Simulated scan of single mutants.
Amino acid sequence: MPKVGIIRCQQTEDLCPGNTDFKVASEGKLGFAETGPVEVIGFVSCGGCPGKKAVARAKIMIERGAEIIAFASCMGRGNPIGFPCPHFETIKTAVEKKLGPEVQLISWTH
């Protein structure tokens, strides 16, 4: 089973416990439909706006066994507050650049 690290928006931590992220990951549904079921081995925030800690945190999760980095839906889609991260594309591009093309990225979870 592939191992995934999930990066979430720090602004939504007090509103979302992440249970839907864990559920769809374990079932291989929605954002994980292409990978099938995965094991979540890390669940961290971006570090707060503008998300500069996301790159280092993604790298640490890869070093500790994650094969995939997923961005929780609060980042790109704005769940649950309806306000996506204004820095999402910059964060995602920076993570892609740091980790390289061999690490799969998933842009949303549910």
Results as ranks from 00 to 15, higher is better:
residue 10 Q to S: 07
residue 46 C to N: 15
residue 33 A to V: 11
residue 85 C to V: 06
residue 13 E to M: 04
residue 70 A to R: 06
residue 42 G to W: 00
residue 63 E to V: 03
residue 52 K to A: 14
residue 57 R to T: 10
residue 57 R to M: 06
residue 22 F to H: 03
residue 109 T to M: 01
residue 96 E to T: 14
residue 3 K to Q: 14
residue 64 R to H: 15
residue 6 I to M: 03
residue 98 K to F: 05
residue 67 E to V: 07
residue 80 P to T: 01
residue 56 A to N: 12
residue 98 K to I: 01
residue 27 E to H: 12
residue 36 G to I: 13
residue 15 L to S: 11
residue 101 P to F: 00
residue 40 V to H: 08
residue 67 E to W: 06
residue 85 C to R: 10
residue 6 I to Y: 10
residue 77 R to H: 14
residue 79 N to K: 01
residue 42 G to A: 15
residue 6 I to D: 12
residue 79 N to L: 02
residue 81 I to R: 01
residue 103 V to G: 05
residue 97 K to C: 09
residue 94 A to V: 02
residue 47 G to P: 03
residue 16 C to N: 00
residue 89 E to Y: 10
residue 18 G to P: 02
residue 65 G to K: 05
residue 28 G to Y: 04
residue 7 I to D: 07
residue 23 K to V: 06
residue 59 K to T: 14
residue 40 V to C: 08
residue 12 T to S: 03
residue 2 P to E: 13
residue 82 G to D: 00
residue 100 G to N: 07
residue 86 P to C: 13
residue 59 K to C: 04
residue 18 G to I: 02
residue 92 K to V: 14
residue 73 S to F: 02
residue 78 G to P: 04
residue 5 G to L: 11
residue 5 G to T: 10
residue 68 I to G: 06
residue 31 G to V: 08
residue 92 K to S: 14
residue 72 A to L: 01
residue 13 E to R: 10
residue 20 T to D: 05
residue 73 S to N: 02
residue 110 H to Q: 06
residue 45 S to A: 00
residue 81 I to K: 03
residue 62 I to G: 09
residue 52 K to G: 15
residue 20 T to E: 08
residue 80 P to K: 01
residue 12 T to H: 05
residue 85 C to N: 12
residue 10 Q to T: 03
residue 6 I to R: 11
residue 50 P to S: 14
residue 9 C to W: 00
residue 92 K to I: 10
residue 51 G to V: 05
residue 79 N to T: 00
residue 87 H to W: 15
residue 84 P to K: 08
residue 78 G to T: 05
residue 15 L to K: 12
residue 42 G to R: 01
residue 90 T to R: 15
residue 107 S to M: 10
residue 31 G to D: 04
residue 49 C to Q: 12
residue 97 K to A: 14
residue 43 F to H: 12
residue 39 E to W: 05
residue 104 Q to A: 15
residue 9 C to D: 13
residue 30 L to W: 07
residue 110 H to P: 02
residue 87 H to T: 14
residue 108 W to T: 08
residue 88 F to V: 11
residue 79 N to V: 01
residue 50 P to F: 09
residue 32 F to T: 12
residue 8 R to W: 01
residue 98 K to V: 04
residue 80 P to M: 03
residue 53 K to A: 13
residue 37 P to H: 09
residue 96 E to R: 15
residue 87 H to M: 13
